[in-house]
Amino acid sequence: MPLELKDIPRAKTLTKKEFMETYFKPQKPVVIEECTLGWPAYSKWNLEYMRKVARNKIVPLYDDRPVHHKDGFNEPHARMNMSDYIDLLKTTPTKYRIFLWNILKEIPELQDDFDYPDLGLRFMKGLPMLFFGGKDSHTFMHYDIDLANIFHFHFEGQKDCILFSRKETKYLYKIPHSLITHESIDFSNPDFEKWPALKHATGYRTSLNHGEVLYMPEGYWHYMKYLTPGFSMSLRAMARNPRNVTRAIYNILIMRHYDGLMRKLKGQKWIDWKNEEAIHETNKRIRA
């Protein structure tokens, strides 16, 4: 039995009015297929081009290992020369991913290859981030700490994306004091006997191809799985819903620091308790 997932709507292009009225105001996701056709990035951006411009830069790498109490917030699991990493992507399956790599800081010339879409939102222009992954590598299901509106542009190959709105959180086994669901869930092929609440969740799915952009509304849960080696860029605009702004401030100023403190004080017992609490509280809700 698969997850109950609707196909994310698609449009070749959208005007500012069409985007705001049909997708932003009701907070619904959409894939815009031809948003990047006029960008130099559309024809230039591939793994070999990234190898050329990144040269010998050392990049942070992440995998899908279980969260450990000694892990810092967004602390990488390994580091590697970019050329070596791209060789790894192209020659063998790997779970190592690049996550939240600020291209304006690392490779400023890449900003000449793209534009900020004129869709009625004010983008945070200092935070264009790159994400890389090898075949079958994936993220945990998570939402972003600032609950921003995210435009996720994909380049080279194909990746699967599964989204859930905030109202589905009660079914997703969210880890307390965290931004992720239980790390043992395989959202591409979930075990409903082990995770029965997932049967009640309704989400969205799509596969992104080269040059396509996925709009993810404020605070949406998202899971990404690379079907082939490739990379994406996210541009973000601040949340506008006052509740989401308040939640983002709490996450940044309180939640992550409280979680870090409890990891230091209780060690792995804190992580284990959070995982158990996610299961207990979620299953209790569906039995009520």
Rank of each mutant, 00 (worst) to 15 (best):
K95Q: 06
L88P: 06
N81K: 14
W101N: 08
N81C: 15
F153Q: 13
D136R: 15
T92M: 09
L104C: 09
L110C: 05
M124E: 12
Q111Y: 05
P93C: 06
M80I: 07
I150E: 13
D144R: 12
Q158R: 00
G134H: 13
C161G: 04
P117D: 04
L100T: 11
G134F: 13
L121C: 06
I145A: 08
L119C: 14
P93A: 05
F132N: 08
S137L: 15
P93E: 08
H152S: 03
T92C: 06
D87H: 03
W101I: 05
L127Q: 12
P108T: 13
F151E: 10
I86K: 03
M80G: 08
T92A: 08
D146K: 15
E106D: 03
K135Q: 14
G134S: 13
L121E: 09
F123R: 01
F132G: 08
G157I: 09
L147P: 08
D136I: 14
M141A: 14
Y96S: 05
L119N: 06
A148S: 12
K159C: 04
M82H: 11
L89I: 10
T94F: 02
L119M: 09
M80L: 13
K159P: 02
E106Y: 01
L100F: 11
Y116M: 03
F114W: 01
I86G: 11
C161E: 09
H142G: 14
K90T: 14
S83Y: 05
R97G: 07
G120E: 02
S83P: 04
D136K: 15
C161V: 11
F123L: 00
L147Q: 10
D160L: 10
K159R: 03
C161N: 10
L130I: 11
P108Y: 08
A148K: 05
H138G: 11
N81L: 13
K159E: 12
S137C: 15
L104D: 03
N102E: 04
L104P: 01
I103R: 01
L89C: 04
K95P: 04
K125E: 02
N102G: 06
L121D: 07
